[in-house]
Amino acid sequence: MNLFRLFGDLSHLASIIILLQKIRSTRSCRGISFKTQALYATVFITRYLDLFYDWVSLYNFTMKVFFIASSCYILYLMRYKYRPTHDPSIDTFRVEYLLGPSAVLALLFHYRFTVPEVFWSFSIFLEAVAILPQLFMLQRTGEAETITTHYLAALGAYRALYIPNWIYRYFTEDMVDPIAVTAGIVQTALYLDFFYVYFTKVLQGQKFELPA
């Protein structure tokens, strides 16, 4: 464990808490892509299959359980409790275009050809692109509530912090995970546009609005 990794994970935790807070305080899931949230639940469930047979640490176990539970809870909130506040007509990204290629890539690139390892690879590739329905929705509406942009910023920071973590681990532990690193760099790159607007507008106290 190094500080980049720790702050990355804490940022991930913070993003989920901000999202829950957004839903609770506005009593609405407006502006949140159900598809992205469903993809994240898929990512956590397919990645953490080892929860049942592999013990890493209490930290690792607790975080995994939290990510699975919170992502399922968010789906419940969106699908049932706040259902009327979700507008499917603007959440139109075709998730088949993400699920299909992730499955193909997982069959091509994995560390072992076993069910958990292929699912693990699948989850890594899927996580890299799971934010796209959300970003697509943002692009379509052209604006976002400030709290939603904080959620996205915390999520992006989590991914960005994993990169120095890998560099650090490469030098201190001689550890390289080419699948996670490649997918992680792609995933972080997807946030660059968002980060640009976040830093130049939201953090200057303006509303998140994309140029027409």
Binding site: R5, D9, H12, D50, D54, V56, S57, N60, M63, K64, F67, Y111, R112, E117, W120, Y162, N165, M175, V176, D177, A180
Partner: peptide, 10 residues
Amino acid sequence: HEAPPTKDEL
């Protein structure tokens, strides 16, 4: 293939 890296990351 080499052995998979330890899955200690989230």
